[in-house]
Design a binder for these strands. Structure first.
Lengths: 234, 234
DNA sequence: GCTTTTGAACTGACCGGTCAGTTCAATTTC
DNA sequence: GAAATTGAACTGACCGGTCAGTTCAAAAGC
């Protein structure tokens, strides 16, 4: 009759596409099992396609084809298309926050100022975006969308990235290096947006320019050489 | 004869869902025919739904239902779902560029500096986003997506908005008010992104704050009081 | 021999687009 | 000025295609 129960297959078969150990995602784990490799291929295929077309326009068949596996394999590795996407998001944010945090830490270790720290994070952000443009596009497209199933996942993602910037700002203020008048949360958002949009435009419309070039332009803005550089502060 | 053709169709029949005079979109025209009203309702329904769910997850049935019309009416007024969306985009960018341009012009008239002009545009941008949050979300979600049918429409849209900012920057440099070192295109992008992301975060996460408040925070950044304000310029 | 992958088949819901028919305010006719 | 006519605007059932998800027997690794 029916092809089978929609949910909770009765005991027998391998629990296909069941919730997989959520810790070991992507290339994070060193033990490179065969399955890990397949999952990685699926991530890479999915991120590109979804960035290009959006989540719902991307079919599971396409993902499987691009990854070079059979459709059944997708469902062997992930419970559903949605779950695949959610794990992808979690995987991605890990890469970004690590990158930002490293930039901040390394700057601190070499004795740089907090403004230098922000500058280093701008560079790290640019580097990340140029390396994972599809992932970035995908976040941007989904981040402020309401009524989404993965809304909470995305908020967590955003919060983790912003928090790193906020910490640097806070430390800068505490050290007397930044004005006490600044609004930490809003400034962090604004800086984040500045890098995000500038980088995406760079990738989309002027890809021939170097990272240093773009970084220099943003540095000027950060250091107030655009609108206030020539004006003596009160 | 008829209740009044909106644009004097030369042919006989109602040329169903044909390309409609692109000039008269939305509530722009004062002559409020029945059809105009319907189109306006459809725009409003579509912009909200697409902002929430994305283009392809939004069904024509949903749009029709939210607008309070039958599905057929959608296809009577627009050739396809895609065309409806494209006209929506064009309609929206008109509002934004006008708003930015007005802010710039009014500042110039009252004898403000070019930095003041940028500041006024930031304010105008914030105002726009708080007034049309759904439209903004929608642009952000689609703007950097590749392989889209309306790619060219979006590029045009972006270019028109950015051009207004670039002009102000260029004038500022020419007037000796801004550093000659700045990269016009990149700085314009960055400023655009700064406002965009800060505003969306404001709307999403701190909606109780006032526009003035947010504007003040971004002004500080523009005028270099964050990273460079305390440092005496060379 | 277990895990993993394959690939084809199938299902049922969903969705964009169509179209024959209906409505009704403006216009024309008498 | 009442009746008839017109046709733009609107309606909603319907059609054909698409796709997520499921299943499974067989093959391929390790």
């Amino acid at each position: 009759m029916s092809p089978g129960p929609v949910d909770a297959a009765p005991g027998t078969r391998p629990v296909r596409g069941a919730t997989y150990p959520p810790g070991t995602i992507g290339a994070m784990d060193s033990s490179n099992t065969r399955r890990q490799a397949t999952r990685q291929k699926l991530f890479e295929a999915a991120v590109t396609l979804i960035a290009e077309q959006g989540f719902s326009s991307t079919t599971v068949d396409e993902i499987a084809e691009r990854a070079g596996v059979a459709k059944g394999t997708v469902y062997y590795n992930f419970a559903s298309k949605t779950v695949l996407f959610e794990e992808l998001l979690r995987h991605g944010v890990e890469l970004l926050t690590t990158s930002l945090q490293n930039a901040s830490d390394e700057n601190a270790e070499r004795g740089g100022s907090h403004v230098d720290g922000l500058d280093a994070m701008i560079r790290a952000g640019l580097h990340f975006i140029s390396r994972y443009p599809a992932l970035t596009q995908l976040y941007v497209a989904e981040l402020w969308r309401t009524n989404r199933a993965w809304q909470s996942t995305l908020m967590m993602v955003r919060q983790r990235a912003i928090a790193v910037i906020e910490a640097e700002l806070r430390d800068g203020v505490a050290a007397g290096e930044l004005s006490e008048d600044i609004d930490i949360a809003l400034t962090a958002s604004a800086l984040f947006g500045m890098v995000l949009v500038a980088a995406l435009d760079w990738q989309s419309y002027q890809p021939e320019r170097s990272l240093d070039d773009v970084h220099a332009a943003l540095s000027l803005l950060l250091q107030g050489r655009v609108g206030g550089g020539a004006v003596a502060p009160g």
